[in-house]
Design a protein around this nucleic acid. Structure first.
Lengths: 133, 133
DNA sequence: ATCAATATTGACGCGAACGTAAACGTAACG
DNA sequence: CGTTACGTTTACGTTCGCGTCAATATTGAT
């Protein structure tokens, strides 16, 4: 506890995931908890990574894509070649996310329009008094 | 051709999907192409729906969620009860999309920050002349 | 010491969203 | 009339992201 680590259960509670999920991410090399005997202990870094994982998932990236992107946030000890590749990868992801943002903004506008339309129809159904003026 | 319909191949070319996908969406009741003999013919409405399907997928909605939402865009002949339910559903989706937009904006900012950091490191690697200034 | 709670490693299962192969129809072209 | 091209159904296969046992430690409390 002194070393700022968390057990698997604490992680599950904080991030609302199951143990299975955390072990799965570890198997996929997205997380690297240390072992205290048999038990996994998650560091602050693991928590930061998990947060990014959840975010990436939300935006539709696969775990494999996320795994590669995670290196960008922890490339302190990365080789130069790796660094360049990661940087290029990040550029693509950034472009993708900005495109997604645009589409999302447009989709929100359109959905609102459709909902206004639906709201109008519902209003008529609620108050049909003025039917014949 | 005169009736503003498209064959399955034309659809595939225009939306960059496979025939299998279109038949799959039909099986899931997301599309309703008419038949000319055996062959499927996709109307303008089918195309509009497919566009919304692709958009929904992009934003992480399942095909089932999308199927329900599609009714909002074509509820001219919808019952009142259905209309209310669909409207409520749309509100939830709208909220979800707006939340997603916020997170996306934040994620973009953070990613940019990280990239600037990486870019700085790359710059140092490119021009180490001032090493001992 | 024992019992319950929590952890671990397999291993199989599962729903979503298609891919892919087989077997068949039909329609046009030379 | 054959074959080439495109379409159809049926059905099994595949990948992803976990869920769900089962069997086995390990740990903490009584």
């Amino acid at each position: 506890m002194l070393e700022d680590t968390m057990t698997i259960r604490q992680m599950c509670d904080e991030f609302d995931v199951t143990p299975r999920t955390l072990r799965f991410y570890e198997a996929k090399e997205l997380l690297f908890p240390v072992r205290e005997g048999q038990k996994r202990l998650y560091s602050k870094r693991d928590r930061a990574r998990l947060k990014l994982i959840m975010r990436g998932k939300r935006f539709g990236f696969s775990l494999e894509e996320i795994r590669q992107l995670l290196d960008l946030y922890y490339m302190d000890d990365t080789q130069e070649t790796q660094l360049r590749e990661t940087y290029l990868l990040a550029q693509k992801h950034l472009a993708d996310m900005e495109a997604q943002r645009s589409e999302l903004v447009e989709a929100i506008e359109e959905l609102k329009t459709q909902m206004d339309w639906g709201a109008a129809r519902l209003a008529k159904l609620d108050q049909p008094q003025k039917l014949t003026g």
